Amino acid sequence: MANATQNRPLSPHLSIYHMYPTMVMSIVHRITGGALYFGTLLVAWWLIAAAAGPAYFEFTNAIFGSIIGRLVLFGYTWALLHHMIGGIRHLVWDTGRGLEKHASTRIAWATLACSVALTIILWAIALIFA
């Protein structure tokens, strides 16, 4: 019996896996989903501040308008767009398309590129019209 347990193969460790773009985007999709919970609290805070009165709303806008506040909002925007595009990617996969290795890698890179580009475009438009 002791010999049988000693000759068992070991489970694969994380060190033997190579990080592929599809794997990274799957992990990032889960992280952005979690980050959206925090961002939704920020949206709720802003809406509550708007309902609470002008003084508290100005206080909240001052926090969101600070450099750190804008960085957090920029990150929230990117997380929202990345998660949405990742969800579209999964919808495409549900149709049976894009599952080949090279196609899924291209789609993973496209997900990242599109989310970054859309975030920058959205913020550029917002800053132009602000």
Rank of each mutant, 00 (worst) to 15 (best):
P9W: 03
A79G: 05
G39E: 03
I121K: 10
H18S: 14
A124Y: 10
H18M: 09
H102T: 15
Y76S: 09
I125K: 06
M84A: 15
G75N: 10
A50N: 14
H29T: 06
R97H: 01
R106C: 04
R30C: 04
K101T: 15
A126D: 05
A55K: 14
L73D: 07
H90K: 14
H83N: 09
V24L: 12
I31H: 01
G34T: 03
Y56L: 13
Y20S: 12
R8F: 04
S11Y: 04
F57I: 07
A35Q: 09
H13E: 05
A110I: 14
N3V: 06
W45C: 05
H18D: 07
H90Q: 14
I31Y: 06
V116K: 03
S104Q: 13
Q6E: 10
F129Q: 08
M25F: 08
P21M: 03
G33R: 12
G65Y: 04
R8C: 00
A49S: 15
I48L: 08
T105A: 14
W109S: 06
G87A: 07
H90E: 12
S26T: 09
P21D: 02
H13M: 06
N61Y: 08
P12Q: 05
I88N: 13
T119Q: 13
L122V: 00
P9R: 08
N3L: 10
T95I: 09
T40H: 07
T95H: 04
R30N: 05
A52F: 00
S15H: 13
I63C: 03
G98C: 06
H90C: 00
H18W: 09
A62M: 07
H102P: 01
G53N: 11
H83K: 01
A55I: 03
H18C: 02
L112P: 01
I48W: 01
A126V: 00
T105W: 05
T40K: 07
V24D: 00
G86E: 05
